[in-house]
Write a protein that binds this DNA or RNA. Sequence first.
DNA 1: TAATGTTTGATTGTGTACAATTTATTTCTC
DNA 2: GAGAAATAAATTGTACACAATCAAACATTA
Lengths: 150, 150
Amino acid sequence: MATSPTPSAKNSLLKLESQICFPVYAVSRLITKAYQPLLHALDLTYPQYLVFLLLWEHEQLTVKELGEKLLLDSGTLTPLLKRMEQKQWLSRRRDPRDERSVIIGLLPAGRALEAQAQQIPMQMLNKMHMPEAEIVALRAHLTHLLTQLA
Amino acid sequence: MATSPTPSAKNSLLKLESQICFPVYAVSRLITKAYQPLLHALDLTYPQYLVFLLLWEHEQLTVKELGEKLLLDSGTLTPLLKRMEQKQWLSRRRDPRDERSVIIGLLPAGRALEAQAQQIPMQMLNKMHMPEAEIVALRAHLTHLLTQLA
DNA sequence: TAATGTTTGATTGTGTACAATTTATTTCTC
DNA sequence: GAGAAATAAATTGTACACAATCAAACATTA
C-alpha cells in the first residue's frame, strides 16, 4: 500500500545531509575563510581579489562588465569598488562616450599587487588536498550547474 | 632555457576561469537566489531555512550545536535566531544545567512550517536540471572538499 | 524632435558572515 | 574550595549580498 512519506522520515529530502545546496554553501564559506590569511597579507577581501583577477587580465572594465563576469550587481560592486578606489588600487570614471557607464581602471598600486598574489592559487590548491583530476571534475560539475541556474 | 611564467600568461592560475573557487562562490549565491522565491512565500531566508532543517529533525538544539552543524559562529547565529524568535518560530532559553548554553526550541508556528516546506527540495531539484547521478557525484566531491577545509 | 521606454549605476534597507573582544559560567588543579 | 583555564554566547565593527527604488543618460519611434 502506498503510504505518504512522513515529514521526519529518515530519507526525507528535508534533511541537511540530503541536500546538495548546503555543501555548496558551506564549502563556499570555508574557501573564503581559507583565502583569508593569504589575502589579509595584501589587505584584500575575497570579492576584492576576484575583481583584481579580472583587472589584472583586462586592465579596464565597466561596472556592468564586472557584474556580468562575477554575477554581482551594482548594489554589491559600487561600495566595494569605492573602497578599492580609496586605497588607490583602481580608478572610477564615467565613460565620456556613454555617461551611464563607469569605467574601472587598474592603477599602479593595484597592478603591483599581481606580483604579490602569484603564489596564492598554488597555496590554495595545497590547502585543498585534492588530486588535480578531482578538482577538474568538480569544476566541470559546478560550471554545468552554474549554467543551469544563471 | 627556463623562463619564469609571465603574470598574464594565458594559462595563468591567476585567471578567473582557472579557479575552482569562483564557481563554488558563484553557484552558492545562485542557489540562494534560486531558493529565494520559494522561501519568500514562507517569509524565510536561506540560512533561516537551514536552521529549520535541523530543528525539524531535532526539535531542540543549543546554539553551539547549530553552529557546529552549519559551520556558523555565534556572531552570525545570535542575531539570526533573535529574528526567528521574534516571529514566534522558536524559543531561546538558557540551559538550567549549564547557564553558558542557550537552547533553541521549536515552537508550534515553526513546526507548522515544515508542512509548507515539503515541496521545496523537489522544486529546487527541478530548477537545477541535473541528473541524479551528477548531483550525487557533485555532493561527494563537495563533501570531500568540506572535510579537507573544515 | 518630443514622448516613451531602456539601460546603467547609485542608493536604501535588511540580513547575513566573521574577526576580535567581552562577559558569564563552568571546570580544572592544586 | 579558591584561583586559573576553558567554554559558550553576546557584542562590536567591517564587509559583503541583494531586493527595491531612484535618477540620469541614451535610444527609439511615431
